[in-house]
């Protein structure tokens, strides 16, 4: 069982560069063909400064930094036992290629079901842009199969 002391744990702030090439790679990996996600000119014609991050991309900040997986390791959770339970996003400001965002994640809850056979880790992340504005929030629910 995961030690409940981890509830409230806030990880270090992670700075994440939004790179145009990475966004194109992501678009290609998910089969996206809308030019606003692939072509700077098309994105600008649609009113964006540069390629916009697609709706689910910002989780990469938590993954590239290894902050999510290293936190799980510190909690004693092995990668082979986890499933993704839920994921959600709320957006406040567009985030585009060329920006650097700061992501901060907190474990807001840990609980178990089925007598401890399944444990749930709730992790809330905030994404702040270079102007210090809250750009997005996302919530990840990780399920641990014991």
């Amino acid at each position: 069982m995961i030690d409940k002391k981890w509830i409230g744990y806030t990880g270090p702030e992670v700075r994440f560069d939004i790179e145009r090439g990475r966004l194109k790679f992501f678009a290609q990996a998910i089969g996206e063909s809308n030019p606003i996600y692939l072509d700077q000119g098309a994105a600008q014609a649609a009113g964006y400064r540069d390629l916009p991050v697609p709706p689910t991309f910002l989780l990469a900040a938590d993954l590239d930094s290894n902050e999510l997986f290293s936190t799980l390791a510190k909690m004693g959770v092995s990668l082979g036992k986890i499933l993704h339970g839920e994921q959600g996003y709320t957006y406040y400001q567009p985030v585009c290629a060329g920006e650097t965002v700061t992501v901060c994640s907190r474990i807001s809850d840990i609980y178990d079901k089925k007598g401890g056979a399944l444990e749930f880790i709730i992790r809330d992340s905030s994404v702040t842009n270079a102007s210090g504005e809250l750009a997005a929030e996302f919530r990840s629910v990780i399920v641990v199969r014991n």
Binding site: G31, E32, G47, P52, P54, P55, T56, G88, Y91, P94
Partner: peptide
């Protein structure tokens, strides 16, 4: 991510406020 494509093919992404799965 594919569901994101479903949504942004229907409305521009700037109109997406919140979603969860």
């Amino acid at each position: 991510a594919w569901l994101g494509r479903l949504l942004t093919a229907w409305v521009p992404q700037s109109q997406l406020r919140t979603w969860s799965v």
